[in-house]
Computed example of a mutant assay.
Amino acid sequence: MALILKGSIKLYHYLNEDIVDERTRDWFLIGSPWPALALIIFYLFAVLKWLPNYMKDRPAYDLRTVIAIYNAFQIAFCAYVVYYSLRLGWLANYSLVCHPVDDGSHSVDYAWKVCYGYFAIKLIDLFDTVFFVLRKKQNQVSFLHVYHHFGMVAVAWGMVKWVPGGHMTLLVPINSFVHIVMYSYYLLTICNESYKKSIWWKKHVTQLQIVQFTILLVHFTVLAVAPDCPCPRIPAYILIPQNLFMVILFSDFYYRSYIKPNKVKKEN
Rank of each mutant, 00 (worst) to 15 (best):
V218Q: 06
L63M: 14
H99N: 13
A226G: 00
L249G: 03
H106G: 05
Q74R: 10
W50S: 05
A46N: 12
A46L: 15
S176C: 14
D103R: 11
S257P: 04
V81G: 01
A60V: 04
A154M: 10
D102C: 06
G165E: 07
I41Y: 02
Y116H: 02
P173I: 05
W201T: 13
A111K: 06
A156R: 07
H149T: 09
L44I: 12
S251A: 14
W162R: 06
V153Y: 00
S176W: 01
M246K: 12
P227I: 09
L187I: 01
G7Y: 09
A226Y: 14
C98M: 05
H106V: 10
V172C: 11
I190G: 01
H145L: 02
Y80P: 03
Y110A: 03
F127R: 02
N175V: 03
C231N: 10
N53V: 04
Q74N: 13
V178L: 07
Y118L: 04
A60W: 12
L48P: 02
I75S: 03
N16F: 12
I124H: 05
I30F: 03
Y83I: 10
T24R: 05
Y147Q: 07
R25H: 06
R23C: 09
L170R: 00
L216A: 10
Y94K: 13
D26L: 07
I215F: 12
Y116V: 08
S8Q: 15
I215H: 00
N139D: 13
L188V: 03
H99P: 05
A36S: 14
V225E: 09
K202Y: 02
V66A: 04
W34A: 14
L63A: 06
I69K: 07
K203C: 02
A92D: 14
R58K: 15
G104M: 04
Q212G: 11
V20L: 03
D252Q: 10
Q140I: 06
V160E: 02
G7T: 11
K136Y: 00
V172R: 09
R135P: 00
N16P: 15
K263I: 15
P261Y: 09
K56M: 12
A72F: 14
S142L: 06
M159T: 12
G31Y: 14
K196V: 02
Y195E: 01
V178R: 09
L239D: 10
R135D: 00
K265F: 02
A156Q: 07
V178E: 06
A72H: 06
V66S: 01
H148L: 07
I4A: 14
K203A: 08
A46Q: 13
L96M: 11
H99V: 05
P164L: 07
D18L: 08
I215P: 05
V172S: 03
K203L: 08
S105K: 15
Y254T: 15
S194F: 11
I4G: 00
S176R: 00
L3M: 15
M246N: 15
N139Q: 12
R233Y: 01
L244W: 02
V108N: 03
D128N: 11
D103T: 04
H219I: 11
K49R: 06
I180Q: 02
P230A: 09
I190R: 03
L11R: 05
H219T: 08
N53D: 14
G166Q: 06
M168I: 13
I199M: 11
N262D: 15
